[in-house]
Design a protein around this nucleic acid. Sequence first.
DNA 1: TCAAAAATATGACAATTGTCATTTTGGCAT
DNA 2: ATGCCAAAATGACAATTGTCATATTTTTGA
Lengths: 225, 225
Amino acid sequence: MIQTVIVDDQEMFRESLKILIQSSGDINVLGCASGVTEALQMMEAEQPDVVLMDMRMPGKDGVEGTRLIKSRWPEIKVIVLTTFDDDEYVFGALKYGASGYILKGSSIGELASAIRIAYGGGALINPGIATKVISQFSAMAKGNEVIHVDEASAADLNDNERKIIKAVGHGMSNREISGKLYLSEGTVRNYISNILLKLGLRDRTQLAIWAVQNGMAMQDSDWNG
Amino acid sequence: MIQTVIVDDQEMFRESLKILIQSSGDINVLGCASGVTEALQMMEAEQPDVVLMDMRMPGKDGVEGTRLIKSRWPEIKVIVLTTFDDDEYVFGALKYGASGYILKGSSIGELASAIRIAYGGGALINPGIATKVISQFSAMAKGNEVIHVDEASAADLNDNERKIIKAVGHGMSNREISGKLYLSEGTVRNYISNILLKLGLRDRTQLAIWAVQNGMAMQDSDWNG
DNA sequence: TCAAAAATATGACAATTGTCATTTTGGCAT
DNA sequence: ATGCCAAAATGACAATTGTCATATTTTTGA
């Protein structure tokens, strides 16, 4: 029997959901909570296998809830319920390790199978949202980069140039970079001008994008800038 | 009736899979192919809704197959089948837009529901693999974010603002953006000024970095800029 | 239909940025 | 020390960018 907890601020929704879920036979609802805080309290006493959590809630929302639950009990699976597919929320929740992201409009069958899948360690992502996640993933895993630079040019960047690129990739201004690297502001400008020429880019914005997409912004994290 | 094609080099496997799938009632197997090339030929004549593709195959493997199919028919969903969870393959296939990644050991029920989910535009990722994808996702997204914006502010961005952010995330200048969106250059500047205020950022470079890191630069690919 | 609200535009301004030609500086080999 | 060379700096300049106050236009709703 899979044990679950439902977190939703609307009483009617969570109670009816409870009945529906329990009718599926192999899934039990340990309890319902009207908010993240209440859910955490409830879970101190007894931990479920899977938490069903509404995304939009007054006070702490589902992203925050996911974060709190996963940091306290990493083995508990969280399925996020939403009435719409807001990108911000999707990425936020997945970032903190949600095992699923499904629309409230889904059928009870879909929900039940999402719970079973999450329980087994899998992840189910709803139509529409899946597309976005995957495209995000593709982007991160490279392939459709927005800014292109041929590898040859990228190869002959010296150490200082890389430091500067990294700084630009962190969103620093020339003045800030000059302070950080003990160079004059003019020198930083000259460096950047050179780098842009080498890489065939137009301005620092394109350079920053390229830096981020190639992970240059986070290598040798010696500074935490 | 959902139409599918099975691609697997082992005849026994694909034929028995065909029978199993067709027994599910709402899913039909248009045909089977022993390799990627054969599958592509077959699909020239008639396109399925979903392709089930083995990962490990002599010649072109599942990653290459996914790439070829998605580039020729982007609307066709691809579910990748594998006997083991090799990271390389997982990420490779997802990169090219696979809608699912499931183990050959899955039950026929799981497979059928994966097909239905993929058909509806969703994505199903199997246990074990999901963990890797999500942890990979978290690793990429968490911690190494260079530019931070509190989620509340990010939430109340309207449609136009998002379009502009996306453009900035592509490295476009104000003039270019104004041309693309049919706004005056001044309006674009005002928009950006507003966005920066909302998000608590300083300049377009920081905005671009944030956009890229949050995948805003590649949503709703209506322009391929 | 009219007024309020919103989206879009304008113009002026300072700050930042990118480019370039031209020094100055600081090793460092002979 | 002398000369050489690269790194660093300077100053001038145009272009772009960001901010702000203020129109103008379009949409919306009562």
